[in-house]
Design a protein around this nucleic acid. Structure first.
Length: 1062
RNA sequence: GGGCCCGUGGCUCAGCCUGGUUAGAGCGUGCGCCUGAUAAGCGCAAGGUCCGGGGUUCAAAUCCCCGCGGGCCCA
């Protein structure tokens, strides 16, 4: 745009010339001061160097006052960071930068989760190991050293990746779960558990990974589809010929350990007489399920012989189906018991193996069954399993099925695909095994934990109130022991002689020399002497790695090793943590559990739960799908700031579907911001502007408007930040910058920047722009730190006194006195009117370059009237019309016709007279009828709707378009005067184009020859000369210089321009 | 089977908590405009059963219930 402007007639003055020269000089240095193209890479490099060389991070850290205790959820040190990890840290960094700008002294210690099975598995793979025996023969000490090396190497690599994302954390001093002081924090917590009787060692059925040969916590079990046998087995009833109770199982390998059958007390069971292959059998199972099962079993006929409730079956004894193969089974009595967990599914009779099932175990304890577990750590049957000894359980399935078939006890065999637990790291299907393990008795703390959840602020609210509570209510005791090597050693020593425990609560109680040698196997050498004279040896287990991170909220503070309780209490609990929704059962939980044990309260005050990163189709990113997007790839294309803004632009708690298109769009918007700031920079630096107080300049209406918008944006940003709604800030930022600042304000003020140097209007504009740039940069600084800092260094510092870094500044507070809602509304209306006018012009094929005589806004809304009055000049210039008028009702030609269809049947023959009457009505009469809504004819009254068809016709020469509160009518007829102006502009436009094609500098003068009738642009010659920097303008055939033939509105026009040698 | 979240134009999402004229953006598409931010920028248009069905209400994308589809977590 930039329409009706600078048509100041007159010759080029000396001042003009000087101005041109200075533009030239500015243009040359401009590119180095403020490049024309936004290049994230260059900016990031420059700013990184600046931050490093000026030690900005350290200085910012020192400035904080009031504490803000943030705890970093420690990423696990395997491999490189992925999109999700990057997103996570960017969220954290943005919040921390914001809090620092709010004056807080922020705890920004990053954490590293460095122990555990995942690393062991990776190292095993590197070394080509398959079993624990490989590790033991290699040497635990060497294996642990490898794990440490692996973890440290990855930590360093990931640190560099995080730094590259502009994440300001204390990378020199992270907390690491492998460090002595951290292990101290964990041991201290276990001691606290022990003192409260919450540390238990018990025989329990646990999730067991036969490959890793260790117990797994519920949180370490991953459910996915697995195909298993699904078999129906007949257990022979003792003392009753050909009578069986029928059970169903998907784990035939647990049958050698069967100890009982469970039925539901109130479910109906029946004994069926069934015929198969000419043989009669009696089968007991749930009545309602029998038909289905018997059909599967291939029975030809069956009938009910007897029915009973489950409770009636109690005590019914049966023979173990594999008693011959597993002789030890002959020592025990097998019978039917009742259990509430039995459901009316399959046969209604549940095979119970207390050594291999959670509920089985509980039932076993209750009724006094043997907990028989003939399976070793590797998932291989022991000698106790008789015939099956030495066989892996999963391989045993088919052997057992075959044995049952041979014995005639297999009723039916199918396969089933169901969700089955797998080891979270090595993906091996887990088994359930009864083993001795160490537990934290979380079940005793559940109520307290639920109570604490309520005291925490959850963002979004349902993260805690619904999702987390659900998990915690279902939580069982936490199995914290692992039969592995790379982990925090469990600090329990047991006397070999009397069995007494010693729980060590501090690393000071054991001898150690450097902070890393508390690991196995060294710690295993430490012994204590028991009161009884016996030797106390450490249990061999290490902690579940989730327990490591569970103590992070004090581990990060090095409490209690290096911090006093008094000091600790001033800081703890954490003000803020944030992680992905997978951490509901992970870190949110492990921390809550550990903390309730240690302190009886939640370790965090606010928890922000964020989503997962998915690919463009909404699938999880995974290597096997080949859809992984690396953060570096994105950064390469759109820069760190672009990346950060992109991942922060949608609601954090929802999954982020990565989209290249959207990511690139962020870059495009940043580019608009860049260009807008650069535009301002060009003229402000040319004019050597220095900051003026806002109240010393004469603000125009558009200045007041943009200031109001700016403060409204500021207000929204602060509110959103306080609610952790980061995406709202990003959206509002782009909205303000693109819509209000670039697309509208800059267009409006463009003419002003050409005014003479000390023009008050221009100074006001500069003052406003400086404020806009400063505030927007500060508001977005936590999100896009590089760009914000760059603008601060290159723009803000140029025009006002500033700090060393933008991060020394405080986050801007809105000045609500500058918010003028009425003006904002008025401008909204004006922008709508402008859009409608553009629309109408397009319909009438009147391009914006062509001035139009007048425009009428029709609306009954007082606000519209006020808006147009208030902002008339803006409408006129933007819409390129000479005159604008608001009316309540635009005078349209109204034509009315009789509604024959409706009135015909009523008036019958007199309808013709009515038609005549209607025809005879004058303009005023029609108007009156329409206002009244009634028409009187021959003593009868009809409503207008019924009697008339009303047609409106807008007057000749007008084109219209709708907006939300009315209509805009544009008078599109061009009179001679307008045509001359329009034509002049067409000519100017062509000459400018030619200047560009010749690559002329903006200040260079030319001579122009235009082959048109001079009358076409009469009165506009000087305008053309001025606009095109033509010293001479002639009409006629061009003969020299650059000549080009144009088509202007269907007319062939030759134009020639010649560069003037200076 | 249970818990939570999501389901709005071709695509990505606002709006829903606190019900109220015509459901908004951006991208993409088509047409055009602008030209001293210019290897940029801008406008207009087409395009929607707001997942489906019930209910509450004068009024439902919005609140309630029942389904369907997707995701995560659990059993």
């Amino acid at each position: 745009m930039g329409l009706d402007i600078r048509c100041c007639s007159g010759e080029h003055t000396i001042a003009d010339f000087v101005y041109s020269i200075s533009i030239l000089i500015v243009c040359q240095s401009l590119e180095s001061m403020f490049p024309s193209i936004y290049s994230p890479k260059d900016i990031e490099r420059e700013i990184s160097e600046f931050w490093d060389s000026h030690q900005i991070y350290r200085k910012v850290k020192e400035r904080g006052k009031e504490k803000f205790f943030f705890v970093d959820g420690p990423p696990y040190t395997t491999g490189r960071i992925h999109l999700g990890t990057a997103w996570n840290k960017v969220i954290k960094d943005t919040i921390l930068r914001y809090k620092r700008m709010c004056g807080f002294k922020v705890a920004d210690t990053p954490g590293w989760d460095m122990h555990g099975l995942p690393i062991e598995v990776k190292v095993e793979q590197e070394l080509g190991f398959k079993t624990k025996r490989d590790i033991e023969s290699y040497g635990i000490d060497r294996f642990v050293a490898k794990c440490m090396e692996y973890a440290l190497k990855n930590k360093d690599m990931m640190t560099e990746q995080f730094k590259a994302l502009g994440v300001w954390m204390d990378w020199e001093n992270p907390y690491m779960t492998i460090k002595a002081e951290y292990i101290d924090s964990a041991w201290w917590c276990i001691k606290r558990a022990y003192e409260q009787g919450l540390l238990e060692r018990k025989l329990r059925v646990v999730n067991w990974c036969p490959r890793c040969e260790t117990a797994l916590a519920d949180a370490e079990v991953e459910y996915k589809d697995k195909t298993d046998p699904s078999i129906y087995v007949k257990f022979p009833i003792k003392g009753q010929e050909d009578t069986f109770i029928v059970i169903w199982t998907t784990t035939p390998w647990t049958l050698p350990a069967n100890m009982a059958v469970a039925v539901h007390p109130s479910l109906e069971y029946a004994k069926f007489k069934a015929l198969r292959d000419g043989k009669i059998e009696y089968l007991i199972l749930a009545k309602e399920l029998a038909d289905d099962v018997l059909r599967k079993g291939g029975y030809e006929l069956w009938e009910i012989v007897e029915t009973y409730l489950g409770e009636d079956l109690v005590g019914l004894e049966y023979e173990h189906p594999l008693a011959d193969e597993v002789p030890i089974q002959k020592n025990w009595r097998h019978a039917v018991y009742i259990a509430d967990f039995v459901t009316a599914e399959n046969t209604g009779c549940v095979h119970i193996a207390p050594g291999h099932g959670l509920e089985d175990y509980e039932l076993g304890v209750q009724v006094g069954l043997e907990v028989f577990n003939p399976v070793d750590d590797r998932g291989v049957y022991t000698e106790k399993a008789g015939k099956y000894a030495g066989m892996h359980v999963f391989e045993a399935n088919k052997v057992i099925i075959e044995d049952l078939r041979q014995k005639g006890l297999l009723l039916a065999e199918e396969t089933i695909t169901h969700r089955y637990g797998h080891c979270w790291r090595c993906k091996t299907p887990i088994i359930y095994r009864a083993t001795e393990q160490w537990f934290l008795a979380v079940s005793k703390l559940k109520d307290k934990m639920l109570e604490e959840i309520d005291k925490v602020r959850w963002v979004p609210e349902w993260a805690g109130a619904s999702r987390f509570k659900d998990w915690v209510s279902n939580a069982k005791d936490w199995c914290i022991s692992r039969q592995r090597y790379w982990g925090i050693p469990i600090p329990v020593w047991i006397c070999e002689k009397c069995g007494k425990w010693k729980v060590v609560g501090s690393i000071k109680e054991v001898p150690w020399e450097n902070d890393l040698d508390l690991h196995r196997p060294k710690i295993d050498e430490v012994t204590f002497e028991c009161e009884c004279g016996g030797t106390m040896r450490r249990v061999k287990d290490v902690f579940d790695v989730w327990f490591d991170s569970g103590v992070a909220s004090w581990g990060t503070l090095k409490f209690p090793f290096k911090m006093s309780e008094e000091e600790f209490r001033k800081i703890w609990p954490a003000d803020f943590i944030t992680e992905g929704h997978d951490q509901t059962r992970g870190w949110f939980y492990s921390q809550l559990g550990a903390s309730v044990i240690a302190f009886g309260q939640a370790p965090y005050k606010t928890v922000l739960m964020h989503g997962f990163t998915l690919d463009e189709q909404g699938r999880k990113m995974s290597k096997s799908l080949g859809n992984v997007v690396e953060p570096e790839e994105v950064v390469e294309k759109i820069g760190v700031d672009g990346f950060r803004l992109y991942v922060l632009s949608s609601a954090l708690w929802e999954d982020l579907r990565f989209s290249w298109e959207d990511a690139r769009n962020v870059l495009r918007m940043l580019n608009i911001y860049w260009n807008a700031v650069r535009f301002a920079y060009t003229y402000m630096s040319l004019d050597k502007y220095r900051e003026l107080p806002l109240d010393e300049v004469e603000l125009s209406v558009e200045d007041r408007w943009i200031l109001s918008r700016l403060e409204s944006f500021n207000k929204l940003a602060v509110e959103a930040m306080e609610n952790y709604h980061l995406h709202k800030v990003v959206r509002a930022f782009f909205d303000f910058v693109v819509e209000d600042f670039s697309r509208w304000y800059i267009q409006l003020i463009r003419p002003k920047v050409w005014e003479e140097k000390d023009s008050p209007a221009k100074l006001a504009t500069y003052t406003v722009i400086l404020r806009i740039v400063e505030k927007t940069a500060k508001i977005i600084a936590p999100f896009a730190p590089f760009l914000a800092e760059w603008i601060y260094q290159h723009f803000i510092k140029e025009f006002k006194h500033a700090e060393e870094s933008i991060f020394f500044e405080s986050y801007p507070k809105p000045d609500e006195s500058l918010i003028d809602e009425e003006l904002e509304r008025a401008m909204d209306i004006v922008r709508e009117i402008f859009e409608a006018a553009s629309n109408a012009r397009q319909k009438a094929k009147r391009k914006l370059r062509w001035p139009l005589r007048k425009m009428i806004v029709e609306s009954k809304d007082e606000d519209v009237k006020k808006a147009v009055e208030m902002l008339e000049e803006i409408i006129k210039s933007q819409c390129n019309v000479k005159e604008v008028e608001v009316v309540r009702e635009f005078e349209k030609d109204v034509a009315v016709k009789p509604n024959y269809k409706a009135l015909g049947p009523k008036l019958k023959g007199r309808i013709k007279d009515f038609a005549k009457f209607v025809d005879s009505l004058g303009k005023d009469e029609i108007a009156e009828i329409l206002t009244k809504g009634e028409i009187e004819f021959d003593g009868m009254k009809f409503s207008v709707d019924e009697a008339l068809i009303v047609e409106y016709k807008i007057p000749e020469g007008y084109e219209y378009a709708e907006f939300s509160r009315g209509m805009v009518y544009v008078y599109t007829v061009l009179d001679e005067e307008l045509k001359r102006e329009a034509f002049a502009r067409e000519v100017v436009r062509r000459i400018q184009e030619m200047r560009k094609e010749l690559d002329l500098n903006v200040e260079e003068f030319i001579e122009s020859v235009v082959d048109i009738d001079p009358k076409l642009v009469e009165g506009w010659e000087d305008y053309i000369k001025h606009e095109t920097r033509s010293v001479k303008l002639e009409f006629g055939k061009p003969r020299e210089g650059y000549i080009k033939e144009w088509d202007i509105e269907g007319m062939k026009v030759a134009i020639g321009i010649k560069r003037l040698e200076s």
